[in-house]
Amino acid sequence: MKTIEIDIRGQICPSCLLLVLREVNQRHRELMDGNLCLVILTDNRAATGTIPDAVNNMGIAAAVEKLAGYYRIIIQGQHD
């Protein structure tokens, strides 16, 4: 599976949400089919709520991991 990592640390919502949505829109089919994993690195706490909610509504699964000083949001596969 292909993995694309996007580092948007330093950016705040909603621009980081729009950035991620743009990427998800462009690669929607690949993500739905499970052929691509999108890894988002962000230090904006609000984004850990808005990004998963938005991509879940689009039918794509998202998981958040807390790392040292930032978050990793993993977007891949279909959301149940």
Binding site: Q11, C13, P14, S15, L18, L21, N25, T50, N57
Partner: peptide
Amino acid sequence: IGTRGLDPGELDDHSLIEFDPIGIVALT
């Protein structure tokens, strides 16, 4: 979609046109 508004300091007018947030949200 549950997030706050766009801060003009975050995205200037020129970038706003380039970034096309309406297009992004519409596709979303």
